[in-house]
Nucleic acid binder design. Structure first.
Length: 273
DNA sequence: ATGGTTGGGAACCAA
């Protein structure tokens, strides 16, 4: 079957529920992973998703900040809520998608943004971000199968990872080297997390590293398209077992122009599973 | 500089 997974930092699911519905009707992903829902679980707009056929939902939200949700047409069996760095701040949930055969494990991640100053000594938010990456790298390393079994491990990780790892994942590599999201220490830790599971960077399968690719544009630009000072902060990763199943990707840039747009746009990938 | 949330103004967070 064809499996399309979408990830979107929605920056308040209640405020932008009409945009979410419009997107789901337009692209019809099988699974949508949201970050920054900013919505306690008892207020989550379940009915809107139920009405569009997203009957399987895993939601972990809190008041004001963070929050992640997996909305799926595909049934999932096992689910996990992960607490990271000793906090319960709603940044990582996991579901096992039942697409026939072995389940496909799906991680929905909202990694800390890290604040303004890229110094863990003076900025606790940046320290938290680095700790989160270290914890994820260790967690994936512990789950990486032995080489002879690696063929079988089907896992997808998506989300707002708040790091733009490649030179052309930002509008100016040189000018962002000291800006949080593109500093060498973050890019190194991103690489360590990638190596821990042998992750494939799905969009970069289709877009060469020399081409610009963004999923986020600041609200603080008058004309985001004209200035085009973007960054690729939202990612879709897949294990080598899914390498031959990757069919296509799409970054829904035009949604940045919708009324009441999020500063992030959806990233989608389609697999033949 | 802009925007969301909370809470009823200003602070915190986003990146």
């Amino acid at each position: 079957m064809s499996l399309t997974v979408a990830t979107w930092n929605i920056n308040s699911v209640r405020l932008r529920i009409a945009n979410v519905e419009r997107f789901l009707k337009l692209r019809k992903p099988d699974v949508l992973c949201l970050q920054e829902t900013k919505c306690p679980d008892d207020l989550f707009p379940h009915l809107a998703f139920e009405a569009l056929g997203y009957r399987h939902r895993l939601v972990q939200g809190m008041k004001s900040y963070n929050g992640v949700a997996i909305l799926s047409k595909v049934p999932f069996t096992a689910t996990s809520i992960h607490h990271r760095c000793g906090k319960e701040d709603c940044r990582h949930i996991e579901a096992a998608l039942d697409t026939g055969g072995d389940p496909i494990l799906l991680d929905n991640l909202y990694i800390p943004a890290g604040g303004d100053i890229p110094d863990p000594e003076t900025n606790g938010k940046f320290a938290h971000k680095l700790d989160f990456y270290r914890e994820m790298a260790r967690w994936y390393a512990d789950r990486r199968p032995r080489p002879q079994a690696r063929r079988g491990l089907r896992r997808i990780a998506v989300g707002d990872l708040n790091v733009a790892p490649l030179e052309h994942d930002v509008w100016s590599h040189k000018q962002l080297l000291k800006i949080v999201s593109h500093t060498p220490v973050e890019v190194d830790l991103f690489g360590r997390m990638m190596a821990a599971m042998d992750w494939i960077d799905v969009p970069r399968r289709f877009v060469p590293e020399g081409e610009k690719l963004y999923s986020w544009w600041s609200y603080r630009n008058n004309d985001w398209r004209k200035s085009n000072r973007g960054r690729r902060l939202d990612h879709i990763l897949a294990t080598p077992a899914l390498s031959g199943a990757i069919r296509s990707h799409h970054i829904d840039v035009d949604l940045r122009d919708w009324k009441l747009a999020s500063d992030h746009v959806p990233v989608l990938a389609t697999f033949d599973v």
